[in-house]
Amino acid sequence: MRKLRLHGFNNLTKTLSFNIYDICYAKTARHRKEYIEYIDEAYNAERLTQILTEVSNIIGANILNIAHQDYDPQGASVTMLISEEPVLSEEDLANVERPGPLPDAVVAHLDKSHITVHTYPESHPDGGISTFRADIDVSTCGRISPLRALNFLIHSFESDILTIDYRVRGFTRDVKGKKHFIDHKINSIQNFMSRDTRNRYQMIDVNVYQEHSFHTKMILKEFDLDNYLFGTGVEELSGKEEKEIRKRLQKEMMEIFYGRNITKL
């Protein structure tokens, strides 16, 4: 691909935002409490900092500042300010429409950038459904796209449902003064995911190409009830209980995936 000769710094802002959801059924109040405690420990501020540090390594950023906080009664947040490091190769900087590493060392050219994550563990007061949501934003200003970190982030959380948005904002100028509103090819966020991810999830795209805005929703194709039970197993349930719990879980997942309340399943 022909190198774009710019006038000054590439100041296109590229933002990758996504929500991930993990759903489970916790039968008793004690099980629901234990699920929240488990999630809070598994994804505390220290662990989230480690994950975002790996994201920073993947996109070749220099971490300027880290702010992190565990909340009472639950949840955590991490915010990183990042800046550029020296560029090693044009191949590393190429925003080719293909999956990024899992993870691999990639050096990029960044400035005025940040990475954030916030977590929201919660339980349904009556239905026994518990959910864990994490909101993640990776925003860069420079030549590389944060989509390079998408594979690593998806595999770091292994979630049931994901909603992903990618948007390129602003413009940069070439040496002739012509504006460029995007500097790399993209038809779908899916093209930046590994094959195993695309095989595991059912996906829907809603893309507005003229606005350089891309949206992908993902939900696991396979549903194994044993993977969604916390504190109990399928063998401990009666046939009636198993049917009811399966219905509740699938309703919860469909409501999150489609973004609306569903009266009947």
Rank of each mutant, 00 (worst) to 15 (best):
S194L: 15
V138K: 06
E252H: 09
E236Q: 14
V87E: 10
F192A: 07
K14E: 04
L147M: 13
Y71P: 08
F171C: 15
K14F: 03
S156E: 11
Q50T: 12
E158M: 12
S56R: 08
I182M: 13
R30A: 13
I82T: 12
I115N: 00
N19A: 12
Y166Q: 05
N44K: 11
R173Q: 13
T232Q: 11
A29R: 13
S113G: 10
F223R: 04
H68Y: 12
S139F: 01
I219D: 02
E46Q: 12
L88N: 09
T172E: 05
L237Y: 02
S89L: 13
V234F: 03
L162Y: 15
Y25A: 01
S139Q: 15
Y228W: 07
Q74W: 01
V234P: 01
I262F: 03
Q69F: 14
P99G: 03
K176Y: 14
S159C: 11
N199L: 15
L4N: 07
E158P: 02
S213C: 07
K251H: 06
C141I: 10
Y120Q: 14
S123E: 08
D160Q: 08
I36K: 13
I256E: 07
G75V: 04
D196T: 15
S238Q: 05
D40V: 02
K33H: 09
E241V: 13
D72R: 14
S83W: 03
I164H: 01
D183L: 14
N227W: 06
I36Y: 01
K185C: 07
H118Q: 13
E84P: 00
L12C: 07
I63W: 04
K251D: 01
E97Y: 00
Y120L: 14
T49E: 14
D92H: 15
L153Y: 01
D205F: 02
M254D: 08
N191I: 08
E211F: 11
S145H: 04
R133G: 02
K3Y: 08
M253E: 06
